[in-house]
Amino acid sequence: MTFRIGPRTSQIIAYILLLVMTSITVIVLFFIIVYIFNHGIGQLSLEFLTDRTREMGKEGGIFPSIIGTLLVTMFAIAVATPLGVGSAVYLVEYTRGGLIRRIISFGADCLAGVPSIIFGLFGFIFFVIKLNLGWSIISGGLTLAVMILPTVIRTAEEAIKAVPHTYREISYSLGGGKLDTIVKVVLPTSLPGILTGIILGIGRAVGETAAVIFTAGSALGIPTSLFSSTRTLAVHFYILAREGISMPKAYGTATVLIIIILAVNFIAYRLMHRFIARYY
């Protein structure tokens, strides 16, 4: 005869188990952030943020990497936003079911699952070598643009879908054309949702390493043009940590990275919720 646990008891055991496992997950997250901050906050100072990097990162600050991150990310967003939002508009406003829609959706879904090292390989062979753009902000930016494209498409698609159909009917019934309706009613209404996707894209671009190290390179100077090679914060942090150049500087850089990521996620979260509260 086997020992049987009653349904009430198993319910309690399951609840406790789930609670413990969920707590562990949350604690791990907080632990990571707190641990990095604990060791890194002390490194932060105006000099650290505005000083040039000296002796491969052993001395000085991270100013060139901040500029590099900013430029590469901005370039990526500038390319990915029109492509992503345009794709989403086309998907929602111009197709209903059908083969074209399935192909485009499939493309975005698959692209979303491609690992960053593959983007790195692709960007390296295509932008850096075949298009002869070299290790540069442009190559890095274009590679990241392709990488964040699915995020922008999917978020914008959801946001545009959430615009009530009646808004479009009103606009059409007032004699608005399709383009008028999209530009004057659909896009302004879905703007917070679209921005959420772009901001999430920024977050991914800022934290990315594998896809940029082989496309933007790891030069330490302050970039002089879009064709300059540059070292983003994430790459700089990777090199500091892996090559053991300076642990304190690594913690400092990681702290800056995490602060950016937290801020980006927070903004995206707030925007999304304002949007959801209004339209769902």
């Binding site: 029109p82 492509l83 345009g86 794709s87 508009v89 086309y90 998907l91 111009y94 074209i100 192909i103 485009i104 499939f106 493309g107 975005a108 698959c110 692209l111 491609v114 593959i118 983007f119 390989l121 692709f122 062979i125 295509f126 075949k130 392709v146 494209l149 699915p150 498409i153 054309g177 399709k178 383009l179 999209i182």
Partner: peptide, 27 residues
Amino acid sequence: KDKIAENILLLIAFSAILSLLLITFFI
């Protein structure tokens, strides 16, 4: 105006699948 916009958007909409094809091809 609407027709031109639609065609441009169609072109843009293929950017994701085109990227995927380019990646596949070059790798």
